[in-house]
Amino acid sequence: MNGAIDDYVANLRGELDFDPALARRLASEVEDHLREAAEADPAWPSPEAERRAVERFGLGREIAAGFAVDAVDRQARRTWITLAVTVVVTFVAMRLRVIWLDDDVLALAPLIDRYAFIAALAVGVIAWFAFRRSLAALAICLVGLLASIGAGIVRADLFANGAPIHVLLSAAGEIALLGVLSFHVIGLGRRLRRTALLRSGAP
């Protein structure tokens, strides 16, 4: 039969499922803490000493919420850095395509390429100053960049049009960064949702 400490540590690991590496690290650290606290209890060795050590430690859910808030901040920082790099690379790739191509500026693809990028940039700048933790703003930036990059590839017909290597490489760079950005935006969404659940007390 598990003691109060084993149960508590297992529960805490579950609450920290948004960061498995942290959950592993903290489990052994918290177990060490609780065993030392239980041994310092006058009732040691007894289940009562373990129960009191767990009580003094605090609710696992509240401790996990403390970590979740920090995890959101770190993930938001990573996402913003990736967004900034993606915007710069997309802009460079767009300019390289414009220099290489001599297409009709009134065609649909060049318009989407340009204005979706401008919209993503505008939303990103506003969100940076006003809503840094806003998942919606980051998702809008992501969709804008996705539209811009997609339109840019269609516009240039890159893979069938004998594009020069620097144009192909810049396009590959923006696609790769878009993938990383999507990964970070999804990760931020998961962490925001987990933080809200931990704070609300919902299962």
Partner: peptide, 16 residues
């Protein structure tokens, strides 16, 4: 007299 576990998020944050 804090709940003892509250120190761990602070330790992790300071280490980061």
């Amino acid at each position: 007299d804090l709940p003892e576990g509250t120190v761990y998020p602070a330790l992790h944050r300071l280490e980061q």
